[in-house]
Amino acid sequence: MAYLELKNIYKTYGEGKDATEVLSNINLSIEEGEFVAIVGFTGSGKTTLVNLINGLLEPTSGEVLFKGEPVKGTSHERGVIFQNYSLLPWLSVEQNVLMAVREAFPKREKAVWKRKAAHYIDMVGLTPAINKLPKELSGGMRQRVAVARALSMKPDMIIMDEPLGALDALTRGNLQDQILNIWGKDKRTALLITNDVDEGIYMADRIIPLRPGPNATLGPEFKIDIERPRDKTELNDNPIYKTTRNAIIEYLMGIGEGRKSEQQSTYILPDLAPKSFVRL
């Protein structure tokens, strides 16, 4: 039995004449401890897919099974890192994390909560900024708070919706490593949504393209058989990396071409410049 399983998922927004089917026939299964990445164009329905898995949305038809049970609403077992951080701007770094800790461990004492919060804030290296408000932090720091908040609830699975999309290349690389580090420690199951093929290949065990919507559906999966820990500079010359990368890009480009000729509109493509892995 798969850890997370999506069976014949369809998701439609709106009713009647205005209805648009964003996701069609999505099938996905993730095993325990796996790190899976889904890549897709902006607007293809990635956030919709993530929200179906974390329980913020319900599918129009089909089933989402988590540990064999149908997903009904959100759960502390599935930690979420949102695309736009979603920190509460009136709370400090510590208070943002504390709020999550309190909910996840309601029966503990205040001192325990504080200790746990401090632990996770330290894990993402934000102890010096513990009393700062989100607006006093850089984008990368905010995202680290969001990571700390999600992890502090000790979720069994961590779901990340383009967590690094808004960051500069250097910060992005750093955070990729931090997330991999944390994931490597206790091998939690992880789902990463990204619009960056390189990021997917660097981080995931498996990478699956999402064919753009409407009627977005998952494409063929690509296994990344590269030893961990992976080295970014060596990766460039790794034959598996090269072939996988080209295959995924070809696949996505093929869709992109098809869409362009069909709909005469432009789409934001992932960064495809060759040999640009360490993007400085």
Binding site: N54, G73, T74, S75, F82, L88, E103, M153
Partner: peptide, 12 residues
């Protein structure tokens, strides 16, 4: 809506 989503994910 983001804040409401936070409330839901934290199950407040």
């Amino acid at each position: 809506k983001d804040y409401i989503n936070v409330a839901k994910v934290l199950k407040l």
